[in-house]
Design a protein around this nucleic acid. Structure first.
Lengths: 216, 216
DNA sequence: CAAAAAATACGCCTTTATGCGTATTGCACT
DNA sequence: AGTGCAATACGCATAAAGGCGTATTTTTTG
């Protein structure tokens, strides 16, 4: 039987695309696609045959990917989880690992890389052969400044699904017009969303926004 | 005797600041400060007592931090080198590790983290900022596509010292006016530099610039 | 159903950013 | 001495971004 995979992403378009790509390789089956953490948990509760692997978006409204990962791992520890994100945010990486994620891939990762990652994860996770990776894990698990994710959730008003979608497009280099084109909405609307995002995150430029996510 | 440290950074202001911070802890001595790779090598050639540890900026005009690291490690293999950078660029991480760097820290890392990193390195470990550690893991898990650093150097016209300086300021959220203020030059000049940077790197906005460096 | 939240959209105005041409000065290398 | 590059600086133009108010529709939720 092929590798069974679940996909959790609030953006149906993205999960659809990932699923299509994966199916083309003919090496995996898509067990389920969920567009929220709650949905994913419900699916797992209702079904007996769980996928071996779940691809989990981090940036989701409501229950985010990290919390979802934590809950899934508490109930079904055998399921491996790979986080998908467009941001390599420090606090997120740290929390994802603590929550039990086995891998952490950027969304724009190429297909072969993804497939290789699947194999590695299923073979017992961390291919930490070089000493560097060992140290890395030790440091991450051993004690990174935990104060960060507190701030992280306290200061932040939650972004809506649409806002997260726009945020991701901004973070991949799209200007307002391009975003409007891709989402089939007016540039005015995009600008308004961006305005709201800025207010919620206390930033006031695209660069600051990226820094907010990336530098921490 | 205290830990002897060398600092190599083309931006004297930054090395000065790092040095001051480190000296305040009263745990280290600054053996030397060099503002180029060549200078660092010359210092090492002229002196018998080498520092145990060198902090090395990656983004330097002329001989960059990676090449400098490689040369230092070929001649003086006992010296540990920690790379300092504002970017967690994949190709750089990969090449820095190949060149023999022991650690890889972001420049805005806090002092306690830095000191802990020093100890780790001297004990044979490999400290990294979590964001970078994750990139490393990705590369190890996913198999790193080595073609990237070729592109990296072919497509890229080399940035001048001033351009790198401005690049770093841009990458930390400064707008043109702020950069002008910090460098005591006219906003017009800053704009011209930015224009030149864009041309050299084939980008045309701040966000693209950040992506060029960060997403790889 | 009613209230709240989210998504949609415009207009107006100010500030920044971007692109291009031009020009001067100083320094390094030949 | 001359060439080339880096750094400095302006002006002019268009494009994009950012801030604020307002308003309608749709969706979610109690």
């Amino acid at each position: 039987m092929k590798l069974q995979i679940g996909i959790v992403d609030d953006n149906d378009h993205i999960s659809q695309q990932i699923a299509e790509n994966l199916l083309l390789t003919d090496e995996v089956d898509i067990a389920f696609m969920a567009s929220s953490g709650r949905e994913a948990l419900q699916w797992l509760n209702k079904h007996k045959n769980h996928p071996q692997l779940i691809l989990m978006d981090i940036e989701m409204p409501g229950m985010n990917g990290i919390e979802t990962t934590f809950r899934i791992k508490s109930e079904y520890e055998d399921v491996k989880i790979i986080m998908l994100t467009v941001f390599d945010n420090e606090a997120n990486i740290f929390n994802a690992i603590k929550a039990g994620a086995s891998g952490y891939l950027l969304k724009d990762e190429k297909l072969p890389v993804m497939l290789a990652a699947f194999t590695e994860v299923l073979e017992g996770g961390a291919p930490m052969s070089p000493a560097i990776a060992m140290k890395t894990m030790q440091m991450l698990i051993g004690g990174y400044k935990t104060d960060k994710q507190l701030l992280y959730n306290e200061n932040q008003e939650e972004l809506s699904r649409r806002e997260l979608e726009i945020l991701e497009l901004m973070a991949t280099g799209n200007n307002s017009a391009a975003i409007a084109g891709k989402l089939f909405i007016s540039p005015s609307t995009v600008k308004k969303h961006i305005e709201n995002i800025y207010r919620k995150l206390h930033v006031n430029s695209r660069v600051e926004l990226l820094l907010w996510y990336q530098q921490s």
